[in-house]
Design a protein around this nucleic acid. Sequence first.
DNA 1: TTTATTTACGCAATCGTTTTCGTTTTAGGC
DNA 2: GCCTAAAACGAAAACGATTGCGTAAATAAA
Lengths: 344, 344
Amino acid sequence: MNFNAITIRDIAKALGLSVSTVSKALRDSYEISTQTKKLVAEYAREHNYRPNPLAQSLKKGHSKTIGIVVSTIENQFFSQVINGIESVAYKAGFNVIITQTHESYELEVKNVAQLTHHALDGLLISLSAETKDVEHLQHLNKQGLPIVFFDRVSSDIKTHKVIADNLKGGYDATKHLIEAGYKRIAHITSPPNISITQERLAGYKQALKEAGRPIEEQYIKYCPHGGRDTEEVEIAINELLALPNKPDAIFTTSDRITTTTLFLLNKAGIKIPNDIALAGYTNTTLADVLNPPLTSVYQPAFEMGQKAADMLLQLILSKRPVTEFETITLPTQLFIRQSTHSVG
Amino acid sequence: MNFNAITIRDIAKALGLSVSTVSKALRDSYEISTQTKKLVAEYAREHNYRPNPLAQSLKKGHSKTIGIVVSTIENQFFSQVINGIESVAYKAGFNVIITQTHESYELEVKNVAQLTHHALDGLLISLSAETKDVEHLQHLNKQGLPIVFFDRVSSDIKTHKVIADNLKGGYDATKHLIEAGYKRIAHITSPPNISITQERLAGYKQALKEAGRPIEEQYIKYCPHGGRDTEEVEIAINELLALPNKPDAIFTTSDRITTTTLFLLNKAGIKIPNDIALAGYTNTTLADVLNPPLTSVYQPAFEMGQKAADMLLQLILSKRPVTEFETITLPTQLFIRQSTHSVG
DNA sequence: TTTATTTACGCAATCGTTTTCGTTTTAGGC
DNA sequence: GCCTAAAACGAAAACGATTGCGTAAATAAA
């Protein structure tokens, strides 16, 4: 806005009115005559007047922008969530500012600070893989900044949350592998501190238990950065392959871990599903054209974004402090494809 | 910022100073004694003072935020570009606001208006597939808003631009197909009005010409929305397949067209590359694990974002109006994979 | 001791709007 | 023709920060 736009004062001067009259005319106040309103409106249109949003926000005390924190928008799951958020935010006249943590706690803290440096009406966040405490958010929340968690949430802050049914997602995938005849089902997942890891792992364990299978810790591998680095997935896979009882199936969580596992197994010449079956969380639209087509747990990302934005807007627009918070759980969908074709 | 943050006035009151003194102390002015500075700094830190960015921007006349317009962040090419932009913008203390056109001219105009409604120091834009005129940008540019084009540019506005070497990209892919032994090479691309279409098409034609091949319009198909809708790709493919001389290879541009073509060919039971070979533009990290692994033209998206942001910052930060503009052309890379394995 | 400087701070205008609270003008009622 | 009330507009104080300028106090120079 450094470019020279015309101001309300310019209009006032040109029309021989006061700034307050112009302002009121523009906002269609009852105090202003129809004639004057027309005059002002016309002049404003002709000269392409745009109210300075900075001044408006400063005066009104809200900026009509919300912040988003995700690990990376390169992950289709998150870009879909963001699309959902934007679809409702824009309808309500809100702008969004997106920041990425790249799974780093340090960057998360920095980004949140960056965001609040700018004027924010609310924050939508999915925690980074490294994040173990949420003091940086707690403080802001106490100060009155509305926050809504989605995907990777924290139980340490009482606020609205939107998550997928991670337990069921893990359960469904694992159960499917069991029913398809696989015996030694491994699990490669994100670090244990984040909510989705715990929930999906619980689903995995529950399915095994129900089938009377033992839960073997050697089959459970964690990637400290949720698969951000290929190496961490490679280590996990190598450890699994080095086991005396190699797994005959792998259940992966997170887009990155899933696709990296697929890549590494292919690269190692391991046939999927004949040597090892693969079922993984992913929201890529490419699951159908992968080699082989991938059995996947799909999350309603767009809806998650919509819900989260809805709830945040509700918090922002609420006249009185909200004390009752809810957690929305969205169903996931298991798509069965060739990467887990039945044994025999 | 509706949440009650402390202001400079609060500090002044608490410390028995004037607001100007506090402001100057915070900005480390030579006018203020070391003691007072310490006092103020300490109080500010203890009470977690953050200058109101709105007020600062209003006063200083710049907002330290830049706007980005892309077709969709779900496209990995664009999310990579955005990563590049962010990497330089944040370093310079700038925030970015991302908007998506979803290939709609109407949405593009709307978004640009939305963005300028908010305070913007500059704009980074890749035109939508529908966009044929750029008056909505010309006006802003004339008013002094710095604009840098990337990827899909317009020749109607004189400003900095960053593009990939689209001609060479199209040329390389086509030449590779020719050398691999394919005879009837089709081309499915974006609408003819956008720059990348024209340039890549020119590369395609050049390679054919050099090889002494005829250029047959029946082999060139346009998708009005750059593959946004599966149907438009389906129509193109069906038309190609209905030809008396069906193509034995297809060169596709844009991520969406490429992956959709792959999907549709697979679905139709057409073997790649045996029945029809496929080479396509894509920046997905999944090209290696597609079925089959896809020969692709890869664009240096991250670098493109960096360069574009660099140039925009240069424009924004320049003291005097810039009149000399340059267009940077980045090289693309052809990755040869199984989808175009040599004939015979 | 007087004058000149420096040091350290406060006043007030400013950025562009919004909004409260006058004030003027006009019309209406008698 | 006078009073009252409504209608239409303006003055000024915000919002929170920045900054040029004025000024008191402290120090140095004469």
